[in-house]
């Protein structure tokens, strides 16, 4: 019997997710033992037309990382959806937009202008990429950028979500184990739409720091403070996103002395991560005086980055800007 087929793709992402998969060490051999890898641009040579030629539903498992930034991303997302039985939004970009999604704060032209005019950009003629360009050899095309970045499930139907920037290797290994067990008839897949490779609570649940009732008089930046290594960071005024961020990482950052920045995304059932966190922080600010509250809030130097670093594209805020319909 031929082995079930496996694919992995990167759309708008940094490549960290691919590394995380390779970082599962010898477990990668299990992947090889149990699957036939049919498409994985970062690891093997394959052409889109090969995928196009495959039978619909012939790939058992596709891990799709990256958000949908351009028409190529969208095309491959749709293609892989058609060819795959199980499509997993893999990593924060595919699940909720992640860092590339922060570009949604700005009109696309501004994004392009910024990218092609930074101090380190060597662009003396100040050119901008064009979707098509006539060469003596013929017309060449590059993908067209969309006005906003979308998450995978805003474009195609997604079976499972695996959060993390990138997903933790031990979680990837566990998911691969699970799929193998399912193949061997020893386990069952979770209901469609589930989040896999993560916990059901939030980072605080796994965090070992001591905590009390919270009252915040001041927010500070971790690099400027001497944080108590035992005590909850948030209580010390360090804006830790742990309370709102899905568990699964073993509270990596808070254990290492840094605040959680939220890469595992919202907790189960939470749609707008940023709104949740805003209301949680607001609830524990210890003042009734508007001026003092403003002063305390000024301690959060980058609210957009604090609350929406990973999930802007997936957040409810997107509804304020129906950009992919109207231009920008």
């Amino acid at each position: 019997m031929s082995k079930p087929k496996f694919a992995m793709y990167w759309a708008a992402s940094c490549g960290g997710c691919e590394i995380a998969v390779l970082n599962i060490h010898e477990k990668i051999l299990d992947v090889d033992a149990n699957f036939e890898v049919v498409f994985w641009p970062v690891a093997m040579d394959a052409k889109y037309k090969d995928v196009e030629a495959m039978e619909d539903g012939s790939i058992l498992l596709t891990l799709f990382n990256g958000g949908i930034r351009n028409d190529e991303n969208e095309h491959i997302a749709k293609l892989l959806r058609k060819k795959s039985q199980i499509l997993v939004a893999f990593g924060s970009c595919a699940c909720e937009g992640c860092i590339p999604g922060l570009a949604n704060f700005s009109p696309i032209q501004q994004v392009v202008d910024t990218a092609f005019s930074t101090v380190s950009t060597d662009n003396p003629e100040n050119v901008r990429p064009q979707p098509s360009y006539d060469m003596p050899e013929g017309t060449i095309h590059i993908p067209t950028l969309y006005p906003v970045l979308r998450t995978l499930d805003q474009v195609v139907d997604v079976d499972y979500y695996m959060p993390g920037c990138p997903p933790e290797s031990h979680q990837i290994a566990a998911v691969i184990d699970l799929v193998i067990q399912v193949l061997q008839g020893k386990a069952q897949l979770p209901p469609k739409g589930s989040v896999i490779g993560a916990g059901g609570s939030t980072v605080c649940d796994e965090c070992k720091r001591k905590r009390n009732e919270k009252t915040i008089k001041e927010f500070g930046r971790i690099q400027l403070m001497h944080a108590d290594p035992e005590l909850c960071l948030l209580e010390q005024g360090i804006p830790c996103n742990g309370p709102a961020t899905r568990s699964g990482c073993n509270a990596r950052c808070p254990s290492a002395g840094a605040q959680c920045i939220g890469c595992y995304g919202p907790a189960e059932g939470v749609v707008d991560y940023g709104a949740r966190l805003v209301s949680a922080f607001a609830s524990v600010i210890d003042s009734n005086d508007p001026a003092e509250i403003d002063r305390i809030l000024d301690g959060l130097v980058d609210p957009a980055g604090q609350f929406y670093r990973f999930n802007l594209a997936g957040s409810l805020l997107r509804a304020a800007k129906p950009a992919w319909k109207s231009g920008d």
């Binding site: 059901g200 649940d205 905590r211 009390n212 189960e268 524990v284």
Partner: peptide, 21 residues
């Protein structure tokens, strides 16, 4: 109870003192 992480954000908020940790 499964989802609660024990972050204690809510503990001090209830105007009716209905929340216990």
């Amino acid at each position: 109870q499964e989802q609660c992480s024990g972050c204690r954000i809510c503990n001090n908020l209830c105007p009716f003192n209905a929340i216990l940790f």
